[in-house]
Design a protein around this nucleic acid. Structure first.
Lengths: 243, 243
DNA sequence: CGTAGTCTTGATGTGGGTCAAGTTGCGTGG
DNA sequence: CCACGCAACTTGACCCACATCAAGACTACG
């Protein structure tokens, strides 16, 4: 990891100007001139589903954006217990600490689907950050959004029933994934498998499976296979999701 | 709330220069000249233990610091279930959203102990924030710290046993409260009652009580009354706290 | 069309919730 | 200073939602 041969520089065809997440990521804070500074630093990295980008305890420390795919932030115990403490989607930001050397990572980052990252080496990115307060402003907004979401998830993990957890999870997936592609369809693919869902919402995979079956039998969700959701009854899901 | 008679301006004897949290709060980012801008805005507010500063759903929207005491961020369901999603200690920052009007609060803020706040009206503070990037930088560092902590707590809520939760909670209290006063003593007062601890770590008050009793009987914690901790066996607590 | 990974379903177990008394500690008033 | 009353805490008995253990059933890919 992060050793040996350098990552490829961004090719002309993959410049920031034409980037899929040019405006939705933190880069949206930057004007044409400013983005040039980042463009010069950017390196692309691809990971296959299941591969690990960073391990808990590492101090790798680059910054970057997710340009395609879904990643999970995972904390694990030696005895096999896992908790997914966050999901990263297209245009989400990656990186720990702000100043100085990178701190030890509190969680691993693993590719859930095939993944594409746009990475900036630590020190040069810190310099860019110091030059452009609008970039830091954008990072702060993102951090506050993630904090609000983490607290929402604390409510789920601390107080919700299995039924409420799965309903809340489905609403969350629908909100994040329906809008990524086309706005009108209500269908989407759940990128996580049953075990990952369980580790995200603090249950076992068996309980997740049973609750999914219940949603199907109650006509609230129409599945096509275990991962593709044809349609959801949003109102009834909200009822089931609890507070 | 936030109606009628204005809060008192900061008196000369309570200026920022002599403030207990002048350097530990976000204000630590500001030079003498810069702090003057904030000093002109500051209003003090006191709450007795148990009083509510903000209700879930409010859009009050001032910013501020906790100058003394402990507050809890609480989310509640109609059926009585509660989850404390964060504790605020001396020098912690309060306020939602950055730009424009205040968003609806996701959680209530309630005084756990007698509480003293140093508040800045929303709009003027936003102006100060726009003028001094170092203040925003400090806010970002704080937000990232809180995010890291929230994710740590997600692990507790999602995967830890009752025994591990109470041990982790005690370590957290020791860390936050021992250093506030004198460094050498290992004793401290738990500001939360059993029900609040339960709502913080996702258990019932009975289970919390039983686990506290177990810590006492196993000689890991010496209590004097239900709230005062005389000493803790740090190493054995860490063992019990799990991952 | 075989086989390995993933998902579903069923049977059983248990950690922590719920319900119900006690007990302790503390402020208040006599 | 003591008696009372109330809230907070502890402890015990019982229960249930979800975990665990154990087969099967899909499905995808060679």
């Amino acid at each position: 990891m992060h050793s040996g041969n350098p990552l490829p520089r961004l090719s002309a065809s993959a410049r920031c100007e034409g980037c899929a997440i040019r405006h939705s990521s933190v880069c949206g804070a930057l004007s044409g001139d400013e983005i040039a500074a980042l463009n010069a630093l950017a390196r692309r990295k691809r990971l296959a589903a299941g591969e690990t980008y960073l391990m808990e305890g590492d101090t790798a420390g680059d910054f970057g954006n997710i340009t395609r795919g879904v990643a999970k932030l995972v904390r694990g115990a030696e005895d096999g217990r896992l908790q997914i403490v966050g999901l990263l989607f297209q245009s989400d930001f990656v990186g720990s600490g702000l100043e100085g050397d990178a701190p030890e990572e509190a969680s691993s980052i693993e590719a859930v689907t095939d993944l594409e990252l746009c990475l900036f080496p630590r020190k040069p990115f810190q310099d860019v950050l110091a030059r452009f307060p609008s970039l830091e402003h954008r990072l702060l907004k993102r951090a506050l959004d993630e904090l609000r979401f983490a607290r929402e998830w604390m409510v789920l993990l601390g107080r919700k029933t299995a039924e409420e957890r799965v309903a809340t999870f489905m609403l969350h997936m629908a909100r994040r994934l329906q809008t990524e592609g086309c706005h009108h369809r209500e269908s989407f693919d759940i990128p996580l498998n049953r075990a990952e869902i369980a580790d995200y919402i603090g249950l076992t995979l068996e309980t997740v499976s049973r609750q999914m079956t219940k949603l199907r039998k109650d006509g609230i969700v129409v599945f096509e296979g275990a991962h593709h959701v044809q349609s959801i009854d949003h109102a009834r899901l909200v009822e089931r999701a609890g507070f």
